[in-house]
Simulated scan of single mutants.
Amino acid sequence: MQLSSMVQLGLIGLLAACLPLAMVWMSSDPNKYRKLVWVTVFLTFDLIVFGAFTRLTDSGLGCPDWPGCYGAANPFLAHAEIVAAETLMPTGPVTVVKAWIEMIHRYLAMGIGVLIVALMGTAWVQWRKTRRAEFAPGLPTALFVFVLIQGAFGAWTVTLKLQPVIVTIHLLLGMGLLSMLVWLGARQNRAAALAHGRFTAPAAGAPTMLCRLALAAAVVLTIQIALGGWVSTNYATLACLDFPLCNGNLVPEMDFEHGFTLWRELGKTAAGHYLPFSALTAIHWVHRNFAFVVLAVLGLAAWRARAHPGVARHARGIALVLAVQAATGIATVYLNFPLTIAVLHNAGAALLVLMVTMLNYKIKYPSGPVLQASHHQ
């Protein structure tokens, strides 16, 4: 890719970040740093949902090179090459629409990268000036390193031709980035509330059982997202065409060995043969059945948290999203994989990551109303 095209891409990334940065700067909120964190959370959530749309519309190779599109900074400049590829294979991975979907995804990712650089830079400057805990630069710096790793996996997603393990890791890193940003945002909220005297840190935290349940919820949710990513990246969503049975059987014919061999090409076994349908069935079946574990653990965590001060609202939110996730997961089977429902299912997973992260933060760092604290004194 030529230097001029790289410069153009960099400028597009800066432009993608200009609007949210301008919104933060012109906001009436005096705490611009906290505002920037939550704007970045919102855009990262959007990026995950749009990434799901990119994957589900088979647009991951809409531009078969990286970081540009046929060496150009945008599909307009690569129009001739894209049209030639589409003419050669009208139903192939490269079309004009798919190229734009893929590049918009990349532009949004670059814009978020710029915002994270801004978060890190602001944190370091303010930390050196004030030494205030909310500007501790460790987490923003970790976010910067994390987004670089995420960018590398985004590149390998394209250059390794949608290799399932790479795409799945790319998804997990995106969810991890969202979780880290939410943790940072929760830290800013708590610091602002304590500074303005609206809350005080209570002496007693959450019960040990609730702490363990919240952590277990995060672990099983991570596993389920990995399994869901494995289903999506292997195109195994329709491997089971009924529910609760799978192709008429409680335990259908399954090939776990080939289905869960991680290092292999898309649609192939490690030996290079076509992946048998029984392997896709195994992938789908495991994700579907582990969902019952997720429902049990997250449901129990929400039930136990509902009466705990400060997290009852998050508990209700988790319960609601769990119900919607179950409904959209079943609907993808019964409605033969409609795109909108599938994207909503991915959005629900990201929303659960956000809520479970908030639950864990508020349990770990509880705070209570000042009036309540004064009443006990």
Rank of each mutant, 00 (worst) to 15 (best):
W38L: 03
M103F: 04
H287R: 09
G368M: 14
T57P: 06
R316N: 15
Y107Q: 00
Y33D: 08
F53H: 07
V353R: 03
Q2I: 11
T40D: 02
L11I: 13
R306K: 12
F53D: 03
I116M: 00
V219Q: 11
A152C: 06
V321R: 01
V94G: 05
L19E: 03
A326D: 00
L181P: 02
P75N: 06
M254S: 09
Y334W: 14
G197L: 05
A217V: 06
F277P: 01
V343T: 02
P90C: 06
K32C: 10
F292Y: 14
A331Y: 02
T340R: 05
L250Y: 06
V286A: 08
T91M: 14
R131H: 09
A216F: 12
P64W: 04
L221M: 13
L162R: 02
V24R: 05
K161N: 08
A204N: 12
W38N: 12
H79Q: 12
Q163C: 09
V147K: 00
A22H: 11
K35E: 11
A218N: 14
T222Q: 01
G138F: 08
R212F: 01
L177C: 13
A214V: 13
R34G: 15
A291T: 14
A155F: 04
L295P: 02
L173E: 01
T328K: 05
P75I: 01
I112F: 07
I318Q: 04
V147H: 01
A133H: 15
A84S: 13
C246N: 09
A195S: 09
Y235L: 10
L119G: 10
E253W: 02
W100K: 05
L21P: 04
L335M: 14
A270K: 04
I330K: 10
G267Q: 11
M254G: 11
L77S: 15
L181H: 00
N247P: 10
G92S: 09
H170F: 00
V324P: 04
H345F: 08
W38R: 09
V49I: 13
L77F: 12
D242S: 12
A78R: 07
T54M: 11
L184D: 04
Q163T: 12
L266G: 08
D242R: 11
I283Q: 05
Q377M: 15
L119Y: 01
N360H: 03
F260K: 05
M23F: 10
L184S: 03
G248K: 06
Y33F: 15
G317T: 08
W38Y: 13
A326V: 06
D58P: 00
E134H: 06
V83P: 02
V158L: 03
A312S: 15
L19F: 08
P202N: 09
E102F: 10
H170N: 00
G151M: 05
A201Y: 01
A319W: 13
A204I: 12
